[in-house]
């Protein structure tokens, strides 16, 4: 049958082939796993961008808050501020826009929502 095998150092030969197959499988796994991890690391870039955006927003918000001064306060409790400051404020806290659209229920006292005083609604 396979007597030809006996002339060779058979054990090491078989085990060597076995190790070769394992190496092939390992390389295959490594290639696919590397592809996944490389694609996944884009999430990291995205997370960095989110962190940067968050910092920017906090910065804008603190600046915009500084613009709500008593000298700009209307009689009904709302504020009038320059348009570019209002834009910055909305950019920092988009949910203000939603509050703006709701009719104010308690005399406009509680939320200090910025209202434009230059005729725009």
């Amino acid at each position: 049958m396979s007597d030809s095998n006996n002339s060779r150092p058979a054990i090491s030969g078989q085990v060597a082939s076995w190790l070769g197959v394992i190496a092939f499988v390992a390389v295959a796994i490594a290639v696919i796993a590397y592809a996944y991890l490389a694609f996944r690391s884009h999430d990291g870039v995205d997370a960095d961008r989110r962190v940067a955006q968050k910092a920017l927003r906090a910065d804008l918000e603190s600046k915009a808050k500084g613009k709500l001064t008593d000298s700009g306060r209307n009689a009904d409790g709302t504020y009038h501020i320059p348009v570019d400051a209002a834009v910055a404020l909305i950019a920092a806290k988009p949910e203000i826009l939603a509050k703006l659209r709701q009719p104010s229920t308690n005399g406009g006292e509680a939320p200090p929502a910025p209202v434009f005083t230059n005729g725009n609604k």
Binding site: S2, S4, N5, G13, Q14, S17, W18, G20, V21, I22, V25
Partner: peptide
């Protein structure tokens, strides 16, 4: 699995 099941591939690689 690598220990148990890869021997058919070895057999194939070393067939006379």
């Amino acid at each position: 699995f690598l220990f148990a099941a890869l021997w058919p591939a070895v057999a194939f690689a070393r067939r006379p």
